[in-house]
């Protein structure tokens, strides 16, 4: 059981669906959506939220700074 619980919020309209966050995630939380945003990109989303540990890796590598990361101690 991870010591931290995390979550991300993606600005889906600004996301360009590059997928760099997907491969950066150590716990395989993120996937590109089947749906597309207004620009036609398959935006990133938390497909497996329970696994998120709030490590910020996705935020750091996101070229468009569309990911905000939250983290709290696991209860």
């Amino acid at each position: 059981m991870a010591k931290f619980k995390g979550a991300i919020v993606v600005d889906t309209e600004k996301c360009k669906g590059c997928g760099l966050c997907v491969v950066s995630c150590p716990t395989k939380v993120i996937e590109l959506a089947r749906d597309v945003n207004g620009k036609g990109y398959h935006y990133a989303h938390m497909a497996n939220p329970d696994a998120c540990i709030g490590c910020s890796s996705c935020g750091l590598v996101c070229p468009d700074t569309v990911i905000t990361v939250y983290r709290m101690k696991a209860s």
Partner: peptide
């Protein structure tokens, strides 16, 4: 609980770069 987000030094303008650009 916010640990990572956009710095205020970055403007809100959407970047014109291609997806995944360094």
């Amino acid at each position: 609980n916010k640990v990572y987000g956009k710095t205020s030094v970055l403007l809100d303008n959407e970047m014109h770069y291609c997806p995944g650009c360094t």
